[in-house]
Amino acid sequence: MGTRVYRKRKCVDWVMRSWCIVATLFAVVPLFSVLAYVFVKGIGGLSWNFFVELPKPVGELGGGVGNAIVGSFVLLGIASVVGIPVGVLGGVYLSEFGSNRFGKAVRFCADVMAGVPSILIGIFVYTLVVLSMGSPSALAGGIALSILMLPTIIRTTEELIKLVPTSLREAGLALGMPKWRVILRVVLPAGMSGIATGVMLAIARAFGETAPLLFTAGYNRFWSASLDKRISSLPVQIYEYASSPYEEWHQQAWAAALILVLIVLILNVSAKLLTSSRSHAR
């Protein structure tokens, strides 16, 4: 091979590699600058009181987003109680019995739902739940979030259950277990850590959603007394603060945003840890 050909190849290699690096930088820079910007802007507003106190009226110093943090977790709790069982069982259905027409339709709907703008889900729950209950409530917000989580949970559960080897199912069946018991006691446990990862990712996504909560959970400046009352949540709180004309509320919005980002980060990292502990076990 001539040295010229060789030199040309090296040159092309160098150009392509630089190109990839530059493109990666372009992708990564906005990502990190968002994180860094939120961190820089928000860190000044953080204090113990910010985590536990109620928002204060304009003009008064201090105040916090305690009710919004609690509210977010309450909403997530309701969403999980509704969404996880339905989603996991739906996924089990699709993988074990879903090779018929109905299964295909459900799978298609789940895929479409995953791409539906979240505000549509908000409107849907608004007309269905909020209008009949008379006012936005924690319950309605939780239901909206659970609908948002469903497609992810259904599809990850289905995929992970399909990964469980047939030999394990056959082992269970050959021990004289009925099929439902094999699914419950052998197949689900074998896919559990992966399913848990999918559920965590769905939760992390739901945690940051604002649009479906705007008309369903509403906004509440105080601690929420019951599940059929309006409830505050971090994303909606940030929305309220950021769209206000007051400087100190903007500062609080940054601090709340930082908390939100940190919680989502923790949820994502724990999902990662779950996955890696699974690959260790194999």
């Binding site: 050959a174 004289g176 074998a190 194999r282």
Partner: peptide, 15 residues
């Protein structure tokens, strides 16, 4: 199947 047991080609203990 609980009266007629089976051992498979590849070992398949429940992991």
């Amino acid at each position: 199947r609980s009266r007629v047991g089976m051992v498979f080609q590849r070992p398949n203990p429940f992991p």
